[in-house]
């Protein structure tokens, strides 16, 4: 694999909602094994940007390129719909803020994890179940719960199940939208520790949208700070948090307790 071509490259990505700006003229490179955090307050455009990068939202302008396993660079925004769906099922994973958006609530925990494997062609029931149980272990869900429906799980368990369902296919790029949002603090700490280990052990590349600067300190190598749809500052995570340059970043950093 050519190490000098980024995994994901975006240029001039803009998205307007009528006259309102969702995001404007955003460019970024994501390298293999790198975790990029996108921070900003509600309405800063970070979720819009994530939607555009992951092919779920059509930008008004700009390009997004993804380097596939065979090193071919694909134009994400101009891919035929079936190819994009296949990409979303295989090389990409999406972790939604609300686990209910990423899970199928009416089937068992094991089936939720196994389903993504079956979509890739796995047919051997025993092996699929084995992989599902293995992943429940990895996200610290009791394997006895493999046949239970996610509806009976706590929100923290649901979020961990969504992560297992997403990572079981070993995606090369994971998009996460506020993965720790709405969870109790102790549950957040457990999930962060889990994500941190998975990112290191699997060498995941990920883009994480969050308003929680402490989350980025733990998980992200680099940060983009967004305000009003535009990137106002970027750099290594500790650079942005310890020596913020832009007035807005300084305000963000000085407004939280020990980021």
């Amino acid at each position: 694999m050519d190490a000098d071509v980024p995994l994901l490259r975006a240029r001039g990505v803009s998205r307007y909602y009528g006259a309102r700006v969702g995001c404007r003229d955003v460019g970024l490179d994501l390298w293999p094994g790198e975790v990029l955090g996108i921070v900003g307050e509600s309405g800063s455009g970070k979720t819009t940007l994530l939607g555009c990068l992951s092919g779920r939202l059509e930008p008004s302008a700009g390009t997004v390129e993804f380097r596939q396993r065979d090193d071919r660079v694909m134009d994400v925004l101009r891919m035929p719909e079936p190819a994009l769906r296949k990409l979303a099922r295989t090389d990409w994973g999406i972790v939604h803020q609300n686990p209910r958006d990423g899970l199928r609530l009416g089937v068992s925990a094991g089936a939720n994890v196994g389903e993504r494997l079956m979509a890739l062609g796995a047919r051997h029931y025993g092996r699929i179940r084995e992989a599902a149980v293995d992943w429940l272990d990895r996200v610290e869900i009791d394997r006895e719960r493999v046949d239970d429906w996610p509806e009976t799980f706590s929100s923290g368990m649901q979020q961990r199940l969504q992560i297992a369902r997403t990572l079981v296919t070993e995606p090369r790029l994971v998009f996460m939208d506020e993965p720790t949002g709405g969870l109790d603090v102790s549950v957040q700490a457990r999930l962060l520790d889990l994500l941190r280990r998975l990112v290191t052990d699997l060498g995941l590349s990920a883009i994480i949208v969050t308003h929680d600067l402490a989350v980025t300190r733990l998980l992200a190598h680099r940060l983009l700070v967004m305000r009003g749809g535009e990137v106002v500052e970027s750099g290594l995570t500790d650079q942005v948090l310890d020596d913020p340059q832009h007035p807005y970043t300084q305000l963000l950093v000085s407004s939280v307790l020990q980021p």
């Binding site: 750099g235 290594l236 500790d238 650079q239 310890d242 020596d243 340059q245």
Partner: peptide, 9 residues
Amino acid sequence: LRAVYANYR
């Protein structure tokens, strides 16, 4: 020291 570590810019 922090500048050398690229923590400060």
